[in-house]
Design a protein around this nucleic acid. Structure first.
Length: 567
DNA sequence: GCCGTTTTCGGCCCGACTGTTTTCAGTCG
């Protein structure tokens, strides 16, 4: 067996590339689709897929059968899927890049390659500039134009953080609701599902006068550019670069449309596949009984799901990860809600030089949110040379004043490269709450360091496990299964960090931890009072992870948290 | 290639838009 297993992302990448090459080779589309689905499944699998394949358990996952499992084993054994190696010999590497360009699908890319001998993006640009593409039947000047435009654009724009997108969309929804022509207005798409980042921001509405509403939408003061505007649909770009899509739909099928435009694609495909087996064809306009031709429309999503035999599914779960099966049996979890949260166990004060507000201000803001307790968890390295004792005094003094509200004497320690903590055991022993986190040298044995920290008798919780920063760095390759195992063994909690660019654990990781029985903490890591509101993002992430109130330890009183601790 | 309260074989989501075409294939979400 290889010493280190290939990463899920790399395994998935090979299947996606194989799918691309098969498609270019004109293979059966359903084989291509099968590889793409397998790639998606592998990406959303929390543990190492390679180990599962070696153990013969990968084929238990949906969309992965014996053939794909054996191909994963090939990656472990020789580094690459054999079929991929073979296809690469036949198809020039650059041709697969054509598929990333708009308007170029497999059929067109293949023709450009085979009939014009174009095999790289540079050659493609030259061919488009020389107006050679239009010599192929079915291709014209427009295609050349679009290809050149796409090649000139920046490689890939960053995705918008949910923290930016969500308030922006909700504000627009509010404004549209106030317009006299509108009836129902809702956010849809990935924002409604609360995915950690989004590309476009979708809104759907019903209106007495659709044209009046789209006109109004396109004329709002923050709109910098109107990309498209018709009676029932408009796309605009705001001055800060956000792209909004508004669809105005008839009220009778509002439920169908809201469901359709909320997605995800995977959820909708699975929903429709299941419906097809029962002779029903589902579209955004209604559910058609194929035999009788009757069409069912729904004003509400609940009616639509009910008609198809499901209980209503919270948008956060609609990712094609087993929610339909659970909803059919009526076994969806009751997801944790922001109102369940009773305290915040990770935040900083001016004692950390990167934070902005005093302990007293943080406490007041937490009280205003209705919390019963907070933990002040300043970085250990700011609390040396008597500052730790001084801060403890300040907290005690505030507690006298604020009781029964409680400020916990917490701390956030860094896990050093050797797995030790950057604070003394004696002082940690006096803390109510200890978070341990990786803050540097992320590639140096992260799993072993986290495990070592969990073994420490005073560490209560591991903060932002993978240390990823959305749009900036991918996060460490931590063996989540080993971390979960150690968490269960030592009674250590795991954090869902609510910072907009962290949201770490990510959804599938938090779900795996929750299902394994590891208690989770949803905390903000706030560095200023306003950041306490990020709990909404953390809770959304928790909901995407199928977490209930019972999974989340800070939905309990502090006394209950203490009782449930094993160390 | 995967999968099964109609199937271990024969299916595999749905509709809109686009560009290039006189009826549609390919692409996209």
């Amino acid at each position: 067996m290889a010493a280190t297993l290939p990463k899920n992302a790399d395994v998935a990448g090979q299947f996606d590339l194989l799918a691309d090459l098969l498609e270019l080779d004109g293979e059966q589309q359903f084989r291509v689709l099968a590889y793409r689905r397998a790639a998606d499944q592998i990406r959303s699998t929390p543990g190492p897929i390679a180990q599962l394949a070696l153990d013969g358990e990968a084929k238990d996952l949906p969309g992965i059968g014996k053939t794909i499992e054996s191909k994963i084993v090939q990656i472990v054994d020789s580094g690459e899927i054999e079929a991929l190696t073979k296809r690469k010999e036949r198809i020039p590497a650059g041709v697969a890049d054509f598929l990333r360009l708009p308007a170029l699908g497999p059929k067109t890319a293949r023709r450009i390659w085979q009939e014009l001998g174009v095999t790289t993006l540079d050659q493609l640009r030259q061919a488009a500039e020389a107006e050679q593409l239009r010599t192929l039947p079915g291709l014209g000047a427009k295609i050349e134009e679009r290809i050149l435009k796409a090649l000139d654009e920046k490689p890939q724009e960053k995705r918008t953080l949910l923290a930016v997108a969500l308030p922006a969309v909700l504000a627009v929804v509010e404004v549209l609701r106030e317009h006299p022509a509108s009836n129902e207005v809702s956010e849809a798409g990935s924002v409604r599902r609360r995915t950690e980042t989004v590309r476009d921001l979708d809104i759907i509405a019903t209106a007495d006068d659709p044209g009046a509403l789209t006109d109004y939408f396109a004329s709002l003061s923050w709109v910098a550019e109107v990309e498209a505007k018709g009676k029932t649909k408009a796309t605009v770009v705001s001055h800060d670069g956000l792209r909004f899509d508004l669809r105005v739909v008839p009220p009778d099928s509002y439920g169908n449309l809201l469901q359709h435009f909320t997605g995800s694609k995977e959820h909708n495909v699975a929903l429709r596949e299941n419906a097809v087996r029962r002779g029903l064809s589902v579209s955004e306009y209604g559910v058609k009984d194929v035999e009788s031709g009757e069409v069912f429309t729904a004003r509400k999503e609940e009616e639509l799901y009910e008609h198809l035999g499901y209980e209503w599914i919270p948008p956060e779960l609609r990712e094609g990860r087993g929610e339909l099966e659970a909803a059919k049996k009526g076994e969806l979890p009751t997801l944790v809600d922001v109102s369940d949260v009773r305290g915040d166990l990770h935040m900083h004060s001016t004692w950390s030089s990167d934070a902005q507000d005093s302990i007293a201000d943080m406490a007041a803001a937490a009280q205003a949110r209705g919390y019963e307790y907070i933990a002040i968890t300043d970085h250990a390295h700011y609390l040396r040379d008597g500052r730790f004792a001084a801060q403890t005094k300040e907290i005690a003094k505030l507690n006298e004043k604020l009781a029964p509200f409680r400020i916990l004497r917490g701390i956030e320690v860094s896990i050093r490269t050797d797995g030790t903590l950057d604070f003394s055991d004696e002082e940690l022993a006096t803390c109510d709450w200890v978070m341990a986190s990786l803050h540097s040298a992320f590639d140096r044995s992260p799993t072993e360091r986290v495990q070592a920290a969990m073994e420490h008798p005073h560490v209560d919780c591991i903060g932002h496990l993978t240390a990823r920063k959305l749009n900036r760095r991918g996060g460490t390759e931590i063996a989540l299964d080993k971390v979960i195992e150690k968490a269960l063994e030592t009674g250590t909690f795991l954090e869902v960090n609510s910072q907009p660019d962290r949201l770490d654990l990510r959804d599938v990781h938090a779900r795996a931890a929750g299902e394994a029985g590891v208690p989770l903490v949803i905390s903000t890591d706030a560095h200023e009072v306003g950041a306490l509101a990020f709990v909404e993002l953390g809770v959304a992430q928790g909901r995407r992870a199928w977490l209930t109130k019972d999974h989340v330890i800070n939905t309990r009183s502090w006394a209950e948290v203490q009782r449930s601790r094993r160390k």
